[in-house]
Amino acid sequence: MADAAETETPEDDDIPAGHALGGGEGGDDLSDEWNSMVGEEEGEGAAAGTPERILNQDEIDSLLGFSMADEEGADKSGIRAIINSALVSYERLPMLEIVFDRLVRLMTTSLRNFTSDNVEVSLDNISSMRFGDYLNSIPLPAILSVFRAKQLDNYGLLTVDSNLIYSIVDVLLGGRRGTSAMRIEGRPYTTIERTLVQRMIEVVLQDAKAAFEPLTEVDFALERIETNPRFAAIARPANAAILVKLRVDMEDRGGRVELLLPYATLEPIRKMLLQQFMGEKFGRDNIWEGHLATELWSTRMEVSAVLDEIRMPLGKVMNMQIGDTIYLDASPDSPVEIKCGSVPLTEGRMGRLGHSVAVRLNSPLSTRAKQKLMRSV
């Protein structure tokens, strides 16, 4: 009978929430579990004696987004994800990914020709980050090259890590295959090492120019080589930039190349980079363009036929009286200058058409005059 009573007890709704079932420690555990179930069903109306659930350390780390095991991981959650999304929140540039995929293919071919070795280039990651954070994250020693995008009128940064530097030097100077490149830490790079890496950087910049060529013409010119990140500041620390990490593998040797382009550098071609595919049009209405062109062709413009111009002192002009004569150095065969405001357009000859004085044009509008008119409009 006692067992039957204990079996039917959990179904009885008249038992108090804090009553221990079955006695002993097992009864206390069963009572606590029952109280928690009642609290979940009743919400805020649960009994006051229901114990609150305490989060463990793993749940707290997951909520806040902080994890000591994966501090540098790309996947972040919780509050940290919200904070990071507020720090750098910029629009995605689909065409830029296509450009860098093209850069990877071009670099694979050009570096194979440059090193005469089997080279594989892969794209690791494309991300957005603050410029100051990137400078602080560069592992030293490294070589930083500052280059200028001429058509975009701004700068970029190309970083070559230590592993790739020693690998390139070893390959170009005839190092044995199958052996890792020798690294000598604690000393600056020699002139030979800097010169060889500079040649590789020039090859990469030429490939970057070819990668951007289907989109727009951009010439990347190497400005200087630095080994200290403080001397490679091309933007303010708070400015956002696009970081592209490329992996270069030469059999058992290799390293990483990082290309940093500030958003200010990409701003002139931002609309092109927003395209989903090459040649996409943005914000253009063919009907409106045709209507605007029609109205421009039918626009009336006032022009002046200038027979001659002379200069005289202002005092003489102020003292002119009725009946005074101004002599011009123009004859009936002198050319007449046609102007629109202060912009000279072309020249013509004076004549008569019916009962009106007319001017016949001798030449079409000059290109320079057209440009001035467009700027004035």
Results as ranks from 00 to 15, higher is better:
147 F>P: 05
217 E>W: 03
190 T>K: 04
337 E>I: 03
317 V>P: 00
181 A>I: 02
19 H>Y: 11
272 M>I: 09
5 A>D: 14
286 N>D: 15
274 L>A: 06
11 E>A: 14
177 R>H: 07
145 S>D: 09
200 M>L: 15
343 V>Q: 05
317 V>L: 12
268 P>Y: 13
333 D>M: 11
34 W>L: 00
358 A>P: 02
272 M>R: 09
312 M>V: 00
133 D>R: 10
210 A>D: 14
376 S>M: 12
45 G>P: 01
5 A>F: 07
164 L>V: 02
1 M>Q: 13
257 V>P: 04
199 R>P: 01
220 F>Y: 06
291 H>T: 09
340 C>G: 03
292 L>M: 12
45 G>S: 13
1 M>N: 14
121 V>Y: 02
115 T>R: 06
193 E>F: 04
132 G>S: 14
142 A>F: 02
62 S>Y: 14
128 S>Q: 09
127 S>M: 13
121 V>M: 08
38 V>D: 05
60 I>E: 13
306 V>L: 01
255 G>V: 06
261 L>D: 02
74 A>C: 03
287 I>Q: 11
100 F>V: 10
149 A>N: 08
20 A>C: 12
218 V>F: 02
353 L>T: 13
24 G>H: 01
368 R>W: 08
131 F>W: 13
40 E>Y: 05
283 G>L: 07
13 D>P: 10
191 T>M: 11
33 E>M: 00
306 V>Q: 00
250 M>H: 06
20 A>T: 13
309 E>A: 00
360 R>Y: 10
93 L>N: 03
340 C>A: 11
264 A>I: 10
122 S>V: 14
150 K>Y: 09
83 I>L: 15
335 P>M: 03
55 L>Q: 11
69 A>Q: 11
122 S>I: 08
338 I>K: 02
105 R>A: 15
21 L>S: 00
312 M>D: 00
152 L>W: 05
131 F>G: 02
364 P>E: 09
113 N>E: 13
76 K>P: 04
206 Q>R: 11
104 V>M: 06
239 N>F: 15
124 D>C: 08
209 K>V: 06
298 S>Y: 07
223 E>A: 10
196 L>A: 08
27 G>R: 00
360 R>N: 07
150 K>G: 01
239 N>L: 14
87 L>W: 04
63 L>K: 12
185 E>T: 14
338 I>G: 01
315 G>P: 00
258 E>K: 10
184 I>G: 01
82 I>K: 09
141 P>E: 06
99 V>K: 00
37 M>R: 09
171 V>L: 05
299 T>Q: 04
332 P>L: 05
278 M>F: 11
109 T>G: 07
39 G>W: 01
313 P>F: 01
255 G>P: 04
145 S>P: 04
233 A>I: 07
85 S>N: 15
240 A>W: 07
239 N>V: 12
144 L>P: 08
330 A>S: 14
65 G>I: 03
107 M>E: 13
72 E>W: 10
210 A>Q: 11
241 A>E: 09
233 A>Q: 15
174 G>A: 08
278 M>C: 01
372 K>M: 12
367 T>Y: 09
87 L>T: 12
16 P>N: 04
105 R>L: 15
115 T>A: 14
